[in-house]
Structure formats: structure tokens, C-alpha cells
């Protein structure tokens, strides 16, 4: 069984520092954020450039090349709704460290991303949603099936899809948490890989609670089958829990120094 995959979320256009650096093509802040995540143990780096309607086709290749030059052993997760920007990014992407992940397709307007993943032999996050948050797990599984059908038609091996049941915020959607975990269990039982954004769960909570909430949710989700997550790798408690879960799941052989690896 393969180990849990962490996708570092901190290169995101929503951060003012990153937004400015992307706009000005300033490598330094981007590389700094990448480095702290790689050093903290992130397996993949998510690169969210936003919709980038104006210059995405030029921006995505720039940032892909920048990061791969500096971190040749860390594969990337290309995160934008802009198809042309994704395509341009994948074209310059070096696969030595692993396939790129497209973030993301859904069962609605972004289902075409599945075709893109098939065309370029990429992995893709399949958000089990169509418009907004799915109402219940029937809907989630319905969307999951729609994504699968599209993948079959496009010739994309389901191994390349990370199904995201859409994690929801605990503060306000407390009653939906068990449902999300149950969706993970169902998708896992179908034999598929899963992922999700942990910061969704803790959104809006006090800063001192966010790390704990994300780590706890992650541990519970791993037991339901979660195979990867979009994480803040600087949350050491979370990263340690993920490593420990890999040991308890038998995905990594125990030794006294397992946290140091």
C-alpha cells in the first residue's frame, strides 16, 4: 500500500504575498513558500494562480518552470479554472518526479478537465460536486459516477483520479462532517483514491484551533480511506499524525526515528 500523499497548499493567489509575486513575476516569495513546504515534508506542491484570465497561459508555465528548476524532486499540482493556463503549464512540466495533478475537475462545468488529464496523461482531482456543495452522499456518489463515466469515455485510468468528496467547514456545517467521512468510506470501497482540502474544515475557526481540527479530521478521514490531502505542511502536528497513521496502517515500517524521515 502506498503512503499518504500530502499536497502543500501555501502557494495560493489568495495570499497577498503570493498574489503580488505572481503579478510581478518575483521568484523569491514563491520559492520561499515552496521551500518551507518541501522542508516540512510536502510530497506535492499546489500552485494556485487563480482564474488568471488575462495572463494565465504565460503565468502558469513561468511558475512551473521556476519551481521545477528549484525543486526537481517535487511534483506539482496545477490549480486554476483556466484550461489554457493548465495546458500551457503541463506542456512545460518535467515528469521526472511524477505526473502533474490537475486541480480540479467536477461533475459540472469543469468536467472537461477530465479530458485534459486523459489527453496529457496527468492526474486529476475529481470534485464530487456540480453546483455548490453536494446536498448529501447520494449526490456525491452520483457525481463521482459521472466523473468516472467521463474518464472511461476519455480513456483515463481511474487510478489517475483523486476523488474529493468536498470537505466542509465544521463551524456551521457540523452536522455534515460524518457524512463526508462516510462518503470517503464509500469511494474507498469502490477502490478509488481520495483527497480533500483540510483547511476547508477549519475555515473561520480561531487560528489556535485550526491545526488541531485539521489534524483530527485528517486522522479520522485516513481511517475512512483517505489517501491524500491538500494540507498546510507547516502544521507539524498534522504532518506527524499523517506519518504515524502510515505506520499504524502498515504503509511504512516502524522504527524509532520514523518521525524524522
Amino acid at each position: 500500500m502506498a503512503r499518504f500523499i500530502t499536497i502543500g497548499e501555501r502557494i495560493h493567489v489568495i495570499s497577498p504575498v503570493i498574489r503580488k509575486a505572481l503579478q510581478e513575476r518575483d521568484p523569491k516569495p514563491i520559492i520561499e513558500r515552496a521551500r518551507e513546504q518541501v522542508e516540512a515534508g510536502a510530497n506535492y506542491l499546489d500552485v494556485n494562480i487563480g482564474p488568471a484570465d488575462r495572463d494565465g497561459e504565460e503565468l502558469m508555465p513561468w511558475v512551473v518552470k521556476l519551481l521545477q528548476q528549484e525543486f526537481p524532486n517535487t511534483p506539482l499540482c496545477l490549480d486554476t479554472a483556466n484550461t489554457k493556463a493548465l495546458e500551457a503549464g503541463i506542456k512545460v512540466y518535467d515528469r521526472k518526479a511524477g505526473k502533474p495533478i490537475i486541480n480540479s475537475a467536477d461533475a459540472g462545468s469543469r468536467i472537461g478537465m477530465i479530458d485534459l488529464a486523459a489527453e496529457y496523461d496527468a492526474m486529476v482531482i475529481g470534485l464530487c460536486a456540480k453546483e455548490g456543495i453536494p446536498r448529501d452522499n447520494d449526490e456525491r456518489i452520483q457525481y463521482c459516477t459521472e466523473i468516472l463515466d467521463r474518464a472511461m469515455a476519455a480513456g483515463l485510468d481511474p487510478e489517475n483520479i483523486l476523488f474529493d468528496p468536498l470537505f466542509v467547514v465544521v463551524k456551521g456545517m457540523q452536522d455534515k462532517q460524518q457524512e463526508v467521512l462516510e462518503a470517503l468510506r464509500q469511494i474507498t470501497e469502490m477502490g478509488f483514491k481520495t483527497t480533500g482540502g483540510l483547511s476547508n474544515v477549519s475555515n473561520g475557526c480561531p487560528k489556535e484551533l485550526r491545526g488541531l481540527i485539521e489534524a483530527t479530521f485528517c486522522a479520522m478521514a485516513i481511517q475512512c480511506g483517505l489517501t491524500s490531502a491538500i494540507v498546510n505542511p507547516l502544521n507539524k502536528m498534522l504532518m506527524d499524525i499523517i506519518k504515524t497513521a502510515d505506520v499504524i496502517k502498515g504503509r511504512n515500517l516502524y522504527c524509532d526515528s520514523y518521525l524524522e524521515l
Binding site: L253, Y254, C255, D256, S257, E260, L261
Partner: peptide, 14 residues
């Protein structure tokens, strides 16, 4: 001892 085998390799590389 499986776990010690791994541990010792890590210690020596560290």
C-alpha cells in the same frame, strides 16, 4: 529485528 534494522540504517546515515 526488523524495526531495529531500519533504525540502525537511519542512525548510520544520519
Amino acid at each position: 529485528d526488523l524495526n531495529l534494522a531500519k533504525q540502525l540504517n537511519i542512525l548510520i546515515t544520519q
